Amino acid sequence: MLQIPILISKWTNLEILRLGGTFQMQEVLAQINIHCKNFIGLAIARAHVEQDEASAIVTLLPNIKQLFLRHAYMEKENLVMILQGCKELEYFDVRHCIGFDEGDDEILKLASRIRTFKDEGSMLYDYDDDYCPTYRVDGFHDGDFSD
């Protein structure tokens, strides 16, 4: 069992967290909600954002400012849930995701209040991989949390 949810109670000054996946995500976000009052940014590599994960982000991190879900699998309704629920987002990166189309009118309208919204390369279906998305971690580096 991973110890991250237990350790977060000691990280009261935590502002940004980068996770390697969505395993134990709800427990991690619950601890952040309780203990990390200055938390502003979350990056999840290779995220698989289903309804439970999207709901956890909205419920437990409603005031998050920066969210990085690049190269994720996330259906449109889960992205919409995050856009509707996280009203304080200033930077939201969902580039190269599978599950919704880049430039979708409904998504762009909901994201219009976000200072920086990136959805380039996202598509409903990855035709090249025959619906077997390729997740890359190389997009997550120190510069990801800056404008």
Score class of each variant (00 low, 15 high):
residue 18 R to K: 11
residue 138 D to T: 06
residue 53 E to N: 13
residue 106 E to D: 10
residue 66 Q to G: 04
residue 65 K to P: 00
residue 81 M to P: 01
residue 85 G to D: 07
residue 53 E to V: 12
residue 131 Y to D: 12
residue 97 C to P: 12
residue 53 E to A: 15
residue 135 Y to W: 06
residue 88 E to F: 13
residue 69 L to H: 07
residue 9 S to C: 12
residue 104 D to A: 02
residue 101 D to T: 11
residue 25 M to W: 00
residue 80 V to W: 00
residue 137 V to G: 01
residue 30 A to D: 10
residue 93 D to C: 03
residue 18 R to M: 08
residue 126 D to T: 07
residue 80 V to P: 09
residue 64 I to Q: 13
residue 33 N to A: 15
residue 11 W to Q: 02
residue 41 G to N: 08
residue 77 E to A: 02
residue 80 V to F: 01
residue 61 L to I: 14
residue 137 V to F: 05
residue 88 E to M: 15
residue 87 K to S: 14
residue 47 A to F: 12
residue 34 I to P: 00
residue 15 E to F: 00
residue 90 E to K: 15
residue 92 F to W: 02
residue 82 I to W: 01
residue 54 A to D: 03
residue 54 A to F: 03
residue 59 T to Q: 13
residue 122 S to D: 10
residue 37 K to W: 03
residue 114 I to H: 02
residue 13 N to L: 05
residue 54 A to N: 05
residue 57 I to R: 08
residue 62 P to Q: 09
residue 17 L to S: 01
residue 99 G to C: 12
residue 19 L to C: 10
residue 15 E to M: 01
residue 54 A to V: 02
residue 97 C to H: 03
residue 135 Y to C: 04
residue 89 L to N: 08
residue 90 E to W: 11
residue 32 I to M: 05
residue 119 D to N: 13
residue 78 N to E: 08
residue 94 V to I: 15
residue 27 E to S: 15
residue 67 L to A: 06
residue 34 I to H: 07
residue 124 L to P: 00
residue 81 M to I: 06
residue 133 P to D: 04
residue 89 L to G: 06
residue 46 R to F: 09
residue 62 P to G: 10
residue 125 Y to P: 01
residue 71 H to S: 10
residue 16 I to A: 03
residue 53 E to F: 02
residue 16 I to T: 11
residue 8 I to R: 02
residue 26 Q to N: 15
residue 74 M to Y: 04
residue 86 C to Y: 04
residue 100 F to H: 09
residue 87 K to E: 12
residue 19 L to T: 07
residue 37 K to L: 14
residue 126 D to E: 12
residue 44 I to H: 09
residue 42 L to H: 04
residue 92 F to S: 04
residue 28 V to T: 09
residue 8 I to E: 00
residue 120 E to P: 06
residue 135 Y to E: 07
residue 138 D to R: 05
residue 126 D to I: 04
residue 124 L to N: 09
residue 112 S to D: 12
residue 66 Q to C: 13
residue 53 E to D: 11
residue 103 G to T: 03
residue 83 L to A: 04
residue 80 V to D: 04
residue 14 L to T: 07
residue 11 W to G: 00
residue 127 Y to S: 13
residue 89 L to T: 07
residue 102 E to A: 06
residue 115 R to P: 01
residue 42 L to T: 04
residue 86 C to D: 03
residue 31 Q to R: 14
residue 125 Y to V: 09
residue 100 F to C: 08
residue 27 E to G: 12
residue 101 D to V: 07
residue 22 T to W: 00
residue 77 E to Q: 09
residue 35 H to W: 10
residue 57 I to C: 05
residue 77 E to N: 06
residue 107 I to L: 01
